Computed example of a mutant assay.
Amino acid sequence: MRIAKLDGLNVHYTDEGDPNGAPIVFANSLGTDLRLWDKLVPLLPAGLRIIRYDKRGHGLTDATPGPYSMGTLVRDAEMLLDHLSVKDALFVGLSIGGMIAQGLAVKRLDLVRALVISNSAAKIGMPEMWAERIRATREDGIESMADAVLERWFGKAFRATEELAAWRNMLIRQSVEGYAGCCAAISGTDFYTPTSGLRLPVLGIAGSEDGSTPPDLVRETIDLVPGSRFELIRGAGHLPCAEKPEDYARLLTTFIKETGHV
């Protein structure tokens, strides 16, 4: 296990592949840890330096007292890449990870040369919705919402598999403080204006069955960036990299090659 101590925060991360290869960084969704990408990583082209991390309040990274701001989560990612001496990365962010990706690209373009905004948007949901999610998390626990969350995460066929139990366990074992803190960060984020100013290669990925960030919401954000491309993975929900990793890997590999990130 690798831990980076960043301004007092213990951040759990992995650094795999070719240490001298082109870096690709993955930021995961609300309620998951870096294992979100386990099925995808072996399908990526050889020669990449592959970095994954648990964001604040998730997985094995410290859960500091909330609420969190998106600026704090972006700064965590920034400090990790500086700690690892990473420049010009291809940054892949899913859900809240996609928001972190947008914020990091706006703040530190030296760190990000290409962006994948997956199952995410410049703004997700309304503050009232997130306030209720935070209340339910703190008063009733994450498990009280688990079944509804899993229905948004995965398509019907995947929800019928035995693997669903593992994803449910991953969700309900996240820190209440971390989960609620990240809900607050999403609630306070509206990146429409800063994201519209980005000028770098952007790939948007959506799942046709995504109940958290529907395809039209994802497409709306991707269309903010001139020259960007939008792709839809049919039959997948909010976590297509786990549900349909081969399809996801094909899209990501094409983007890697098209941007010369090898």
Rank of each mutant, 00 (worst) to 15 (best):
D18A: 03
D18V: 01
P19D: 04
P19Y: 05
N20E: 00
N20H: 00
G21F: 11
A22H: 04
A22F: 03
A22I: 01
P23K: 05
A27N: 14
N28A: 09
N28D: 10
L36T: 14
W37R: 12
W37I: 09
K39C: 01
L40S: 10
P42Q: 08
P45F: 03
G47F: 09
L48Q: 10
R52G: 06
G57S: 06
G59C: 02
L60V: 10
T64M: 15
P65Y: 06
P65E: 06
Y68P: 03
Y68D: 00
S69G: 10
S69D: 06
L73G: 13
V74L: 00
R75A: 11
R75I: 07
A77R: 10
A77D: 13
M79H: 12
M79P: 10
M79V: 07
L80R: 07
H83W: 15
K87D: 00
D88N: 08
A89E: 11
A89K: 10
L90A: 02
L90S: 00
F91A: 09
V92N: 01
G93R: 05
G93H: 06
S95Y: 03
I96S: 11
G97Y: 14
G97K: 11
G98S: 10
M99T: 10
M99L: 15
I100A: 04
Q102R: 12
K107F: 00
L109I: 02
L111P: 13
V112W: 12
V112P: 13
L115N: 02
L115S: 04
V116P: 12
N119M: 08
N119L: 05
N119S: 07
A121F: 05
A122G: 12
K123F: 08
I124T: 00
I124D: 02
G125F: 06
G125S: 05
G125I: 03
R133F: 13
I134M: 14
T137N: 13
R138A: 08
D140Q: 15
E143C: 00
D147V: 04
D147F: 03
D147A: 06
